[in-house]
Design a protein around this nucleic acid. Sequence first.
DNA 1: AATCAATAAATTATCTATAATTAGGAGATG
DNA 2: CATCTCCTAATTATAGATAATTTATTGATT
Lengths: 212, 212
Amino acid sequence: MSTAKSEPLAARISRELSDRIVTGRIEAGARLRQDHIAEEFGTSHVPVREAFRRLESQGLVRSEPRRGVRVAGFTHDEVREVAEMRAALEALALRNAAPHLTNAILDEAEEATRAGDRARDVQSWEEANRTFHRLILEPCGMPRLLRAIDDLHTASSRFLFSGWRAEWETPTDRDHRSILTALRAGDSDRAASLLAHHVGWIGKSAYRNKRG
Amino acid sequence: MSTAKSEPLAARISRELSDRIVTGRIEAGARLRQDHIAEEFGTSHVPVREAFRRLESQGLVRSEPRRGVRVAGFTHDEVREVAEMRAALEALALRNAAPHLTNAILDEAEEATRAGDRARDVQSWEEANRTFHRLILEPCGMPRLLRAIDDLHTASSRFLFSGWRAEWETPTDRDHRSILTALRAGDSDRAASLLAHHVGWIGKSAYRNKRG
DNA sequence: AATCAATAAATTATCTATAATTAGGAGATG
DNA sequence: CATCTCCTAATTATAGATAATTTATTGATT
C-alpha cells in the first residue's frame, strides 16, 4: 500500500480497532481478548496492550486491572455529555480560528456541505460532516484542543453509526450554511454560537429519538 | 502501604513520572529512555512503554515513532490554550453541577479556599485549589468531562510549579468566594461566568508575567 | 563532506508467573 | 431423593520478564 512503512504496530492496531468500534462491527460491552486480537493481526500481545491504552484514553474502551478490556457502552447521558463538550470546545476553537479563515477555506467548507447533501449513506455523510468541522476549526492553531475535539467527534460518530441518530437525514446543511454566512460576515461570535447550538442539538435529538 | 497491591505496574510508573514532570523534577524536553526508567523501577521496559502511552494522551510527553519519548515543552501559546480549554469546560461542568450542589459541599469548598489562603508553599496551595475546583464540579455527574478537566488541571499545575505563575500569591480567594456567593444565591450562570474568567485569567497572567 | 562500521535504543516476539473464571464434586438441606 | 451451596481443581487470560530484531545514531576513516 503506502503508509504501512515504519508505523508502529500499536498505532495500526489501535486505528483498526477504533474503526471497528465506531462503526459498530464490535458491539458495546464486547470483551477484547489480547491474544485473540494479537493472533488475528499476526503480532504478539505486547503492541495490542499498547493499543488498548490509547483506546482507553479515547473513551472507546474500558479496562479493569486483571479483568480485561471491554468496549465502552454509551447511555443517553453519555451521548449528551459528549455533545455538550463538543459544543463548548468547538465554539472555543471557532472563535480562535475565525481571524485566520480565508475565503478559500470557506469555499472548501461550502463544498463539504454540498457533499453532505449528496451523501446517500451514513459513511459518506459522516466523512463530509467531519471535513466541514475540521476545515473551519483547524486554523485556530491549538493542537491540544483539536485533538480533544477529534476524540469527541469519534465518540459522536459511534452514536451516529449505531442508528440512534437519524441526524444525517435532517437538514444539517442549513446549520452549516448559516455558520458560513456568519463567518463571511465576520461575525465570529454569532458563528460560534450557531455552531454550539448545532452540535449541542445532537445530544437532544438522540434523547428525543430514543424516547419517541 | 495500602492499595498498592494489585495495581498494574504501568499505572504506578505513569503516576510517578507524571508527578515528576508536573513538579519539574524532570524538565521539559528531557528524553525518557525506557530501559533506564525500567531499571530504576526494577521492572522490565514493557510496563514502562504502557505508562508512556498514558502520559502521551495526557499531553505530558511527546512520542516520536522509533525515535523515543521526551517530556513535552510548553510555550506561551500552549499555556493560553490549556487555560481557555479549562475555562470552557469548567464553566460547562459548573452549570451542570449547580443543581446538585448542597450546602455541605459549599461549606467544604469554603474551607478549601481558607486552606489556600493559609498555604505557605506552592504544593499545598495547589492542593487546596484543586480541591476547591473538584468539589464544586464533581456533582455534575459527567465522568468524561471530569477526566478531561483533571488532565487540563494537571497541565496547568506544570506551569504553576515551573515558576512562570505567581498565581498562588495573588488573591485567588476573592474569585473563589464570589463564585461561592453566586452559587449560594442560585445564580449558576453568573457562577459559571466568574469561574471561566477566573480560570481564563491564568493564561493571561502567565503571558504578562513572562513579558514584564 | 560522505560513507560505512559500531553502538545504542526502540520495537516486537517468546516465554513465565500470577490472578481470575469456570467446572466438577462433596456435603448439607428441603 | 433432588437441589442448592460451597469448596477445590483445572483452565483461561492478563501481566510481566527476558530475549531477539530492527532501526536510528554516533564515530571513524577515506
